[in-house]
Write a protein that binds this DNA or RNA. Structure first.
Lengths: 195, 195
DNA sequence: TTGTTTATTGTCCCATCGGTCAATCCACCG
DNA sequence: CGGTGGATTGACCGATGGGACAATAAACAA
């Protein structure tokens, strides 16, 4: 890992604190004071490291996105067939330490801002584009391109919907149940052969 | 239609105005002043008819829910087979005048409040329960109960996900495309025979 | 008409919040 | 040692927004 300056570390701490507050309070409830308190600092410091509240949220969403991406990529790196890639993507999107209600709340809150914040919208587009691209890397060898694209859209919408469901009804679903539903939707021909 | 008092009419107008503002501005941006302006009245009048902003939002969500319910029920009433019931539910959830980005934004904004507002959470539970019950009325005659329940969860999560998708990426999908994806997911055995 | 209730408005209050700023502290460098 | 620049704080400001309230207008009952 590259050396990080003191200010990079501070920024990182503040992003983490902001994400924790976001889980509890949502975007509206996340004030600069609460973020500062969560990080054990003063409000001024937050604005010292982030030009504005909007920029703080943007970086929080960007980092949450990177964490998700890395988790999926870690699984993808170990996948040795198109079918295994698909499973890797699905399981990477339902890691047990991320697919929990508070995290869903934070994401949901951020998503609700997307229509009114161009920076967040950009990040959201990246997320969708990567999901589509990842899924296509597994589907393309197995299906005609038109069918693969339809399938990718279906699966990514289903994953989004399952996250939304957990956010709206905490405790209504375990990661394993969510994965089972997506596997079911992939269908037998896209699942890896039993080991 | 039953006689409505003047106050019922006012409340109705204010709910409609609030929903319009909600589409444009989201929950945070929807202030009592803006709602009043949208309705052509003063801020005081809003709090005359609704005890608080929270109660206004609660009634807005409740009414939006009723509109959705009625649209689905209208189609269900014309369905004469389990397969037709399933199609009715799906098409009722993607009516072209409701499945549009601004409406998605309003719903998304309300959903983001669900974790922090018990009244909204109650309404959300009702929505999910009705969706599940409607789907089961079509699936139960066609599948074993365990499979039917899994299928219902799959389909309702997919519908949620498609709505979310339209909210996050306006213009990325037409009602027909969304319906096609859900039909695909239902599978041939659950689709009505070609006419 | 008169009295009573309801509709409606504009004003006021107060808490909150994002953001600015000057002052201070502290670490490092010459 | 002294100074320079970033780190940190707390005070302050202006705007906003939810909500209370008193005053007024209008509808209605007696």
């Amino acid at each position: 890992m590259a050396l990080r300056s003191i200010s990079d570390i501070r920024r990182q701490e503040l992003r983490a604190a902001a994400f924790r507050v976001l889980q509890r309070e949502g975007v509206q409830g996340t004030t600069l004071e609460k973020v500062a308190a969560e990080a054990g600092a003063s409000k001024g410091i937050v604005l010292h490291y982030f030009r504005s509240k909007a920029e703080l949220f943007e970086q929080v969403m960007r980092e949450a996105n990177l964490v998700l991406r890395d988790r999926v990529n870690a699984r993808l790196a170990r996948a040795d067939s198109p079918q295994a890639r698909l499973i890797a993507i699905v399981e990477g999107n339902f890691e047990p330490d991320m697919f929990i209600a508070p995290v869903c709340h934070a994401w949901l809150s951020l998503c609700a801002q997307v229509p009114r914040d161009a920076a967040l919208a950009r990040i959201q587009r990246v997320i969708h584009a990567r999901m589509q691209s990842n899924l296509m890397s597994g589907l393309r060898p197995l299906l005609p391109v038109a069918e693969a694209e339809a399938k990718a859209l279906q699966i990514s919408a289903l994953i989004d919907g399952l996250w939304l469901r957990l956010g709206l009804a905490p405790g209504s679903m375990t990661p394993d149940e969510a994965i089972a539903i997506v596997r079911q939707t992939l269908g037998p021909s896209l699942l890896p052969p039993p080991h």
